[in-house]
């Protein structure tokens, strides 16, 4: 009885999860689908070809988003790793850790509005550097909090041991600390990449429409009610997270376990 119940419910749940993604892909391949037609008049790769033709700028947005997210993820992960160590050894580490939660108290749009004056003064408004900086301000505290659990007395003892065995600072990092933190570094990199990839509020305010990341493009198509392009850009939007999820599952979690 129990087995029969599982046999029906589980495939149904899988279908439920997969349906939005399949439907998005279907919509991205469709065109001229008007009420009361059951199926679209056009079904093919026309929408996808437009990506390459640069008519919509989706390919540029995709590449720009990839560049921005990679920059944010690399800088946040590495700075989070090193600065979390300094915070761990700091006499006021509890206050510093608490301060790291501050950017998450405010909504990203409100946070961006608060920062906009400084960005304007620094000439960071409406350019890629400004967007990277703004997204860094969100993802860096995440990395700091993420790595705060890595540092402890045992890690300190490992560092001391390497020193007395004759190792210098580089040896400590490259031969022991990085290998020990490898799994965490990869997870943090993926997480901060995703934070940056899906960031909308900060990017739209600091980018002022000039920096059109793929997330901004999705909202733009939805606002224009161009749901075929909207679906296509959504496919592009979820493509990197799906790849990262796959890598996470295949390599990272296996190693951590």
């Amino acid at each position: 009885m129990y087995k029969n119940w599982r046999a029906y419910v589980l495939p149904f749940l899988v279908l439920l999860v997969l349906f939005p993604f399949t439907y998005l892909l279907f919509l991205s391949l469709s065109g001229a689908w008007y009420y009361p037609d059951v199926l679209p008049k056009y079904f093919g790769l026309r929408n996808w070809r437009t990506i390459l033709s640069s008519e919509t700028g989706l390919l540029q947005s995709f590449l720009m988003s990839t560049g921005i997210s990679l920059a944010v993820a690399i800088v946040s992960t590495l700075s989070g790793f090193f600065i979390s160590k300094t915070v761990y050894y700091h006499p006021h580490k509890r206050i510093l850790n608490l301060l790291a939660y501050l950017p998450y108290i405010l909504a990203p749009v409100v946070f961006a509005a608060c920062l906009s004056y400084f960005f304007l003064k620094l000439g960071l408004f409406g350019n890629v550097t400004g967007v990277i900086t703004a997204q860094f301000l969100i993802s860096f505290p995440y990395a700091l909090i993420f790595f705060s659990s890595f540092w402890n007395e045992r890690i300190k003892n490992y560092e001391n041991l390497v020193s007395t065995l004759g190792g210098n600072t580089l040896d400590r990092y490259f031969k022991v600390l990085f290998p020990l933190a490898k799994g965490l570094l990869l997870v943090c990199f993926f997480q901060t990449y995703l934070i940056s990839w899906f960031e909308y509020g900060l990017t739209s305010i600091i980018g002022v429409g000039k920096v059109q990341t793929i997330t901004i493009k999705v909202f733009m198509f939805i606002k224009e009610a161009n749901y075929f392009y909207g679906a296509l850009s959504c496919c592009l939007l979820i493509f990197p997270p799906v790849v990262l999820l796959y890598i996470n599952k295949k390599y990272v979690f296996k190693k951590i376990a």
Partner: peptide, 20 residues
């Protein structure tokens, strides 16, 4: 002198083998 220059090894109660 820094610890790495003294050639004195400090051993803890824990074995602290490198797990990787």
């Amino acid at each position: 002198l820094k610890p790495e220059q003294r050639n004195m090894v400090y051993l803890y109660q824990e074995d602290l083998l490198f797990p990787h």
